[in-house]
Design a binder for these strands. Structure first.
Length: 279
DNA sequence: TTGTGTTTTATTGCCTCC
DNA sequence: GGAGGCAATAAAACACAA
């Protein structure tokens, strides 16, 4: 802001203005007092209700005599019509009072407008205009605040988003790294057999062999190098043994441990399992 | 003193509501 | 159709740097 007004004109105007009645209620003003009446603020209208569109006409005919406006201004008033029609700024006191009133209620009912106008020595229209302009300023400020708020919110969201992106990339790299390590490992111990074999059997028996396989490999859901068909085939070949090695479940007598010659392909240490088997 | 930017006061035109 | 609100705008008043 380069310019900006600090009401320095007050020194000029206040000479002509009586002290404001600070005890007044900005919202409901006693009609008797006219504390802020001052010639500088007096803007009379030739007709309170103007023509249709030009609702208001500004005239300074309200300066009735020399006593009301001061000698200098009276002279100017008489000598220079154009200067008479220049705008008048409201006094500091008037503005302060209007501000207080605006804080209480930023809309202006007709009755309140009349009261304020009387109290401040202004035309009701001036009060209405002041409130209108004040609402416009308030709206502008509000928009600025909203913008700043949204901007802050956006920055925050963007920072979060960026963090999530970084985290995602990190996790992705980790997954790639782990996948690579898995692929470097030696192939798991599998019983690869032809699924077309006439001795193709059910999966219940074959599940007994799971512990002989690298299940982390066989069941890795993210083993994306392998298509679904290939994966299914792999599962069959890996997990399902033909009955040439594993007899069907219904053929097995679990009432006693199997003979040592028939360990279903298990190592000798698996005998411990059978030793605990009992019905 | 003057040029320039900002703020305030006021007008205009359009719109909505009653 | 009048009253009043709002957006856009004009113009005066003001601040301030050069």
């Amino acid at each position: 802001m380069v310019g900006g007004r600090v009401f320095s004109h007050a020194s000029t105007f206040s000479i002509l203005l009586p002290k404001p009645n600070t005890t007044l209620d900005p919202l409901f003003l006693p009609a008797s007092s006219s504390s802020f009446l001052g010639p500088r603020s007096m803007v009379s209208f030739a007709d309170a209700r103007g023509e249709k569109r030009g609702r208001w006409t500004t005239s300074f005919d309200g300066f009735d005599d020399e006593d009301e406006m001061g000698e200098e201004e009276y002279n100017n008033n008489n000598n220079n019509i154009e200067q008479r029609e220049k705008k008048r700024r409201l006094s500091v006191e008037q503005v302060e009072f209007l501000e207080k009133s605006f804080e209480v209620e930023n809309k202006l009912e007709p009755e309140r407008k009349i009261q304020l106008a009387k109290e401040l020595g202004l035309q009701p229209r001036q009060v209405a205009i002041w409130f209108q302009n004040r609402r416009a300023r308030w709206k502008t400020k509000q928009l600025e605040k909203d913008y700043e708020s949204l901007e802050a919110s956006y920055s925050n969201l963007k920072a979060n988003y960026d963090n999530l992106l970084k985290e995602k990339d990190k996790l992705k790299a980790e997954v790639a790294n782990l996948t690579e390590k898995l692929q470097e490992q030696p192939p798991p111990h599998k019983y690869i057999l032809d699924s077309e074999s006439p001795h193709y059997t059910d999966g219940v028996q074959s599940s007994l062999l799971l512990e002989h396989c690298d299940s982390s490999y066989a069941f890795d859901p993210d083993h994306s190098d392998v298509s679904q068909d290939e994966e299914d085939d792999l599962m069959r070949k890996t997990l399902i043994l033909p009955s040439i090695i594993l007899p069907k479940l219904e053929d097995v007598d679990y009432s006693h441990p199997p003979e040592s010659s028939c360990h279903f392909g298990f190592a000798e240490e698996d005998d411990a399992f059978w030793s605990t088997w009992s019905y």
